[in-house]
Design a protein around this nucleic acid. Structure first.
Lengths: 132, 132
DNA sequence: TTTATACAGGACTAAATGAGTCGTATTAGC
DNA sequence: GCTAATACGACTCATTTAGTCCTGTATAAA
């Protein structure tokens, strides 16, 4: 419970780095991977994923790299986590809407409420709070 | 991120069930395991763990079982989660206090703050909110 | 005193997830 | 054409979580 995946951690590090560069500046995967000692191949996939999600824009070829194309104040932590890790929920039945075994599940409703609480908080944290 | 382990989920279910019994009543692992379709062996271990943590008291022998011996309004969700899953933190370095690789880690301090936020909220949720 | 029922717990196996690697293809500047 | 960059499927390896097996101990009741 609660721990970010390395993917998420690396993605935030990368975004933070890119944001610290000047507006419209290019950054390469190699550069970030070396600066923060992150596996180059792994980081590459993560940046590709961020591209698919339109947070950054890839420029291919020599002299290529990635450019930050999103205002990170506009993206909430909740959105970002779901982007990186898929749907979030304290228990499976919140995510899939179907209770596997427990017929008369006694804890779902209160769990659901706590889930909402966390969601509300995370929806009000822009990831720029982390990357700045 | 965010998902409870089955251990935690089953523990909450068990506590909820025990609380719904009368004061000082005994409940067996078998009873709970059958009612909620939880593996008997697995649930047994969880109940043994709750005993070690002094939330419930085991009575051995025939006619034995477990008795709830704690006021669940006195135990916070944060405490309980750490009890069941060990130390909690968004990233490893919050838990172990040592940053593995990232020399100039750029995201630790804001992550730390978010961690605190969640911790504060969970410390103010008694698990009786879930088991009642 | 035997039997049945309950907890205790170590050691193991299986399944799922997460982290990381390999190899090859594509794109574009010089 | 060479070099430096992204793209990406397929794989391996490691870790964690979930669940099982087996044997032992305690105790109520017949």
């Amino acid at each position: 419970m609660l721990k970010l995946t390395k993917r998420t951690e690396y993605a935030l590090t990368a975004l933070s780095h890119m944001q610290s560069q000047g507006e419209g500046e290019l950054t390469t995967a190699r550069e970030i991977s070396e600066k923060y000692s992150i596996s180059f191949q792994l980081l590459s996939k993560i940046l590709q994923h961020l591209s698919k999600e339109n947070l950054i824009k890839p420029i291919q070829g020599a002299k290529g790299g990635y450019k930050l194309i999103t205002d990170l104040t506009e993206i909430s932590l909740w959105q970002f986590l779901e982007m990186m890790e898929g749907p979030l929920g304290l228990v499976d039945c919140i995510i899939t809407s179907e209770c596997q075994k427990m017929d008369g599940c006694v804890i779902l409703s209160p769990i659901h409420k706590i889930n909402k609480t966390v969601q509300n908080i995370f929806m009000n944290i822009p990831i720029s709070d982390i990357t700045n």
